Deep mutational scan, measured.
Amino acid sequence: GSPLAQQIKNIHSFIHQAKAAGRMDEVRTLQENLHQLMHEYFQQ
């Protein structure tokens, strides 16, 4: 897949890990990143 698709997959797993660790501030930051990446992805 594209590097962007790979990045989106990575962030999904980072979010999963951050949630499991209870780091909600990190989850929020990652979700904002994910949102931006998704936006770029669909602009392609």
Rank of each mutant, 00 (worst) to 15 (best):
A20E: 11
Q36K: 13
Q36L: 11
M24L: 11
K19Q: 11
P3C: 15
G22I: 02
D25E: 11
Q36I: 11
N10L: 14
Q7M: 13
F14Q: 15
Q7T: 07
K9G: 04
N33W: 14
E32M: 08
N10H: 08
I11G: 01
H16E: 15
L4K: 03
T29E: 11
H35M: 11
S2I: 14
Q6N: 06
Q7R: 07
P3H: 14
H16L: 11
E32L: 06
G22N: 06
N33D: 10
R23K: 10
H35R: 14
S13V: 10
H39L: 13
I15A: 00
Q43S: 11
K19N: 05
L34N: 00
S13D: 15
Y41A: 05
Q17S: 09
L30F: 04
A21Y: 01
H16I: 12
F42G: 06
H16G: 10
M24N: 06
T29L: 12
K9H: 07
A21G: 06
M38A: 03
R28D: 04
L37I: 07
E40I: 09
E26C: 14
I8F: 01
E40N: 05
I11L: 14
A18C: 11
N10R: 12
V27K: 01
L30Y: 04
L34A: 02
M38H: 03
T29V: 13
Q7E: 08
M38T: 03
N33G: 07
L34I: 04
P3Q: 14
F42N: 07
G22M: 04
I8A: 01
Q36D: 07
G1N: 13
I15C: 10
E32W: 05
K19Y: 05
A21S: 06
V27I: 05
M24K: 05
E26D: 08
I15Q: 00
Q43L: 10
A18M: 08
G22Y: 01
K9Q: 09
A18V: 03
Q44E: 11
A5M: 13
P3F: 13
R23A: 05
A21T: 05
F42D: 07
I8V: 03
K9I: 10
R28G: 04
E32N: 09
E40H: 05
M24A: 07
N33Q: 15
N33F: 15
H12P: 02
Q6S: 05
I15E: 00
